[in-house]
């Protein structure tokens, strides 16, 4: 019950703060512009593509690339959205107030996480609505699109957890955002050096986020990839809960 109360409070705060609206509106406008460009290119190449036996379709050339663009934006948007969730509360003395209401640290963290997820999934749904708006007029590869959407949902969920963990540890929201951004980029491109050296199946490749996101964007749902995202989110949430619990001990 208290998780729900924290979620309601956090959602309300997200929806009345200009930051969430500015981020939402500007990124959606940017993605809509990209969608239009990709759609134009697809329409221009449609006749040539139709002649190919297994040529890429609307899903490969418009829907999935649009989601890939959303992933790039998420690296910046999620740290900005999550930065003040705990660091801001601590700075203003409100985290102590929440603990002084007898709320469990896990309820505080999970409530805030759920609110972030609601916002991020609504953002994903609005982006998905763009390619889906043409579903009646084109052939969509539903399986591939569902896999890519699942990949994006998992990416957003794990980035939100990472952002919350950084916000729990950092003393200032801006530091939380910077650390979350650096960690996200490091996790994404951890295997770049290994790939350049021709190593494709080492432990470092397994650690990299791109190794697990790319298959999902290609339509391949494998449980190790799903587990990787779930593990990342779980570890980050556990870290955030531990840090908030330590607040009572450390002061």
């Amino acid at each position: 019950m208290s998780v729900l109360a924290v979620t309601r409070l956090e959602l309300r705060r997200l929806f009345v703060r200009p930051l969430a609206w500015v981020l939402g509106a500007s990124t959606l406008a940017w993605l809509a512009w990209n969608f239009t460009l990709m759609l134009g290119s697809f329409l221009a190449a449609q006749i040539r593509l139709a002649a190919l036996p297994d040529g890429p379709g609307y899903t490969d050339l418009v829907a999935v690339p649009l989601l890939a663009k959303l992933a790039e934006l998420a690296f910046l948007v999620v740290p900005l959205l999550s930065m003040s969730a705990l660091a801001g509360e601590r700075r203003e003395g409100r985290l102590a107030l929440l603990l002084g209401m007898g709320l469990k640290p896990s309820h505080i963290v999970l409530g805030k996480y759920a609110a972030l997820l609601v916002w991020l999934l609504a953002w994903l749904a609005l982006v998905l609505a763009m390619p889906l708006a043409l579903a009646h007029a084109t052939a969509i590869d539903w399986g591939k699109l569902a896999a890519a959407a699942l990949g994006m949902a998992l990416l957003l969920a794990s980035l939100a957890a990472l952002g919350l963990a950084c916000s729990a540890v950092a003393s200032h929201p801006a530091i939380a955002a910077a650390v979350a951004l650096v960690l996200t980029l490091a996790l994404m491109w951890l295997n770049l050096g290994a790939q350049m050296a021709g190593v494709d199946d080492g432990a470092i490749n397994w650690l990299a986020m791109s190794s697990h996101l790319q298959p999902l964007l290609r339509g391949l749902v494998a449980s190790p990839d799903v587990v990787w995202f779930v593990l990342l989110a779980t570890v980050c949430l556990a870290l955030a809960i531990r840090r908030v619990a330590a607040e009572r001990e450390r002061g």
Binding site: R12, R17, G93, L97, G100, G102, L103, K104, R248
Partner: peptide, 22 residues
């Protein structure tokens, strides 16, 4: 039983921490 304070205690900290946007 840290959750006991939820029901039994009302606390006003020194600077009344509020959510400015609410």
């Amino acid at each position: 039983h840290p959750a006991l304070v939820r029901r039994l205690v009302g606390w006003l900290p020194e600077r009344a921490p509020l959510w400015q946007e609410l």
